[in-house]
Each structure stands twice: as structure tokens, then as C-alpha cells.
């Protein structure tokens, strides 16, 4: 049984088409939902929660019909909203217990479980505080607690790391990964932060202008580039770049401090004579049968030090932008033909 199966789901609001021909088959697991603002992510989530009827198509979520499921769907889903969604005046434990009761847990069970979940999420101390006193980081955990209280098989997480500082974000992502890997929770993580998705999700769905433009396992979407490398080099680049070229290596770009550096003779212009030598990054395209040992030989000849060497595979950010660009081009072609 697939977690979510959608067939040609469409939703329009008047003239505006929010979703068009969305066909998806997602297995249980950690799913990232990506897309720019207005791509239809929230419309899709609403349809999956049974809060909005699709105007076309049909679908099932854990074998529940999304057109008729309504309440039944929401019982399977723990929803963590991006907005605060708190009930002022309540204490942490009361709030989570209330969520449990709303999900349909008996009152006593909800109360017991609220304490358990809050302790698990590291809010043990804050359980009896009023919600108004919670910090951003605590609120995010609290929102996760209220989504987990009835132990749902599926979680919808809307920007769960927004407003968190680096340590808080790291902790939240680790928590999500544990929930997914060790406790078998499936979730849909909807976020603008592609790094978050890259860290915790196995599968991604990219929505763009109401259509699914890509879905699949992150690994499979990535174009492997066996012939492209990223080199981090400490020292002056001039000689090395010349030598690389002489060996038939194409230098595609050079950056220093994330800023592009011209590949011409002025490549080392901003490096002073004394003081520390900066680290620059080169992206190179190597000829066939290239041995990476040659990088080290050339660097050694020129007295520079290689501090890093990686295959230049795409990251999620690049996949995302490539897909969006491809879609834009196809649409342009289609419009041109029509």
C-alpha cells in the first residue's frame, strides 16, 4: 500500500488554477515538498488533509479516499503549522493534551501521553509554563509535540525550522531524522530551506506553477558528473591553472570567498605579497582516464596546497533550479508551438 496515491488531481479557484494534473505515488518515508511561493504546496496539503476538495481527479492517503475521508484523513496526520497556532492561556502540557483529545484520545490517555511526548522533545521543564512564555525554539518543539501526541503514522511539517538558531535547527532536524528512521514515522516536510530537505528526506517532490515537475529519490535525481571536480586550493592560482590547462583540464570557474574570480592573468590580483594565502575553489572538467594524483603533482610543482577535492555532483539546490529552468523552457517551447 502506497502512502499517498494521487491521480490527476486538479484544483481551481475561480479562474486561477492552483493545482493541475497532479499524479503522485509516494511510499512511506521522509518526503520533502519543495516549490516556490504560490506553487500549490499548501493547496496540495489542504487536499491531503481533507480540508479542501479537489476539483478534478482522485486519490487515496493510506487507503482513505481524499474526497470522502475528511475527518478520517486528519486522524492519520499530525499537522505542524508554520504559524504559531497556539491557544493562549494554556500551559504546555494542557495544550498538548487538548490536541490529543481533539484527535480523539480519551482524556486521561491524552494527558499522560502529553507529558511523555513533551519529555521526549526536551520540554520537560517547560511543561507547566504558559504558552505566552515560550521562546521560538520551544514553540517549534511544542507544535511538533501536539502533532505527535496521538502517534500518527504521518506528519505534515510546515517550515519546522523557521526562526530557530543554528543549534536549535540542528536539534530539530536530528529529531525529525530519528522519528523517521527509528520510529517509522513518515512525514512531508514543506520548506524553502533545501538544505533541511537534503539532510532529512529520502524523497522529494517539486511543485512548480501547480504541477509536479519532479518526484523521486534524491539520489536518483542527482546527475552524477564523473568528469567534474571541485578543488579547494590554498595559495596563488595562476601557475596551477596554466598547468591544468596544459594537461587538457578545462577550468570552468574559480571563486574566492564565494566571489567569482576572473580566470585571466589577473586571477591572483587581490592576493597580497605577505600575510595569509587565501583558499580558492576551482571547478574543473577533466579529460578521460584522468588520475586525480595529477592534481597533487601539479599543485606540488607550483607550491600550492590542495585542501579539498570532491566530485562536482549536483546538490538539491542545483537540481531544484535546473528542474525549474527546464520546465520554463518546455513551457516556452509549447507556447511557441501553440
Amino acid at each position: 500500500m502506497a502512502l499517498i496515491e494521487l491521480e490527476q488531481i486538479g484544483r481551481r479557484f475561480g479562474n486561477h488554477v492552483a493545482l493541475h494534473d497532479v499524479t503522485l505515488r509516494l511510499e512511506a518515508g521522509r518526503i520533502g515538498l519543495l516549490g516556490p511561493n504560490g506553487a500549490g504546496k499548501s493547496t496540495l496539503l489542504k487536499i491531503l488533509m481533507g480540508l479542501l476538495q479537489p476539483t478534478e481527479g482522485r486519490g487515496r492517503l493510506m487507503d482513505v479516499d481524499i474526497r470522502r475521508g475528511g475527518i478520517q484523513l486528519r486522524r492519520l496526520i499530525g499537522y505542524m503549522s508554520e504559524a504559531d497556532a497556539l491557544v493562549p492561556g494554556l500551559r504546555g502540557a494542557e495544550y498538548v493534551a487538548l490536541a490529543g483529545q481533539l484527535y480523539g484520545m480519551p482524556r486521561g490517555e491524552a494527558h499522560r501521553r502529553a507529558h511523555e511526548v513533551l519529555t521526549y522533545l526536551g520540554l520537560e521543564e517547560a511543561r507547566y509554563r504558559r504558552l505566552e512564555e515560550y521562546s521560538t525554539g520551544m514553540k517549534q518543539r511544542l507544535k511538533l509535540a501536539q502533532a505527535l501526541v496521538h502517534d500518527p503514522p504521518l506528519l505534515f511539517l510546515d517550515e519546522p525550522t523557521s526562526g530557530l538558531d543554528p543549534a536549535g535547527r540542528d536539534a530539530m532536524l536530528r529529531l525529525l531524522l530519528t522519528l523517521g528512521r527509528e520510529h517509522g514515522k513518515s512525514f512531508i516536510l514543506s520548506t524553502h530551506l533545501l538544505n533541511d530537505v537534503e539532510r532529512v528526506c529520502e524523497t522529494v517532490v517539486i511543485l512548480y506553477r501547480g504541477r509536479v515537475i519532479e518526484q523521486g529519490r534524491t539520489e536518483e535525481l542527482r546527475t552524477s558528473r564523473y568528469d567534474r571536480y571541485r578543488l579547494q586550493v590554498e595559495g596563488k592560482l595562476g601557475g596551477l591553472v596554466d598547468d591544468l590547462r596544459a594537461e587538457g583540464v578545462q577550468v570552468l570557474s574559480a571563486t574566492r570567498g564565494r566571489r567569482a574570480v576572473s580566470l585571466g592573468p589577473e586571477i591572483d590580483a587581490e592576493i597580497g605579497e605577505n600575510g595569509r594565502l587565501p583558499v580558492s575553489e576551482l571547478i574543473v572538467l577533466v579529460p578521460q582516464d584522468w588520475r586525480t594524483r595529477l592534481f597533487f603533482t601539479l599543485a606540488d610543482n607550483r607550491g600550492v596546497v590542495i585542501r579539498g577535492l570532491q566530485r562536482d555532483d549536483e546538490d538539491l539546490e542545483q537540481i531544484f533550479h535546473r528542474k525549474i529552468q527546464e520546465t520554463g523552457t518546455t513551457e516556452a517551447v509549447r507556447h511557441g508551438a501553440g
Binding site: I71, R75, V87, P88, G89, L90, E94, L98, Q101, L102, Y103, G104, M105, P106, R107, E109, R113, E116, T119, Y120, H150, D151, T178, L179, E182, H183
Partner: peptide, 28 residues
């Protein structure tokens, strides 16, 4: 360990939900 524990129990229907809502409302 103080890890995550699954919860096994049956959820009852939505007809019960007005009670907790009104209890919270009264409290407020």
C-alpha cells in the same frame, strides 16, 4: 530509555471533540 514510545489505543470519533473545546473555553 526515555525514548519515543508508540501509543496504541483507539481514537474515538469527532462527536467527543466539542467537550474539550468548551472546557478550554470555560477555563479561559
Amino acid at each position: 530509555l526515555l525514548g519515543y514510545r508508540p501509543w496504541q489505543g483507539t481514537l474515538h470519533g469527532a462527536w467527543m471533540t466539542p467537550w474539550p473545546i468548551s472546557r478550554v473555553a470555560l477555563g479561559m
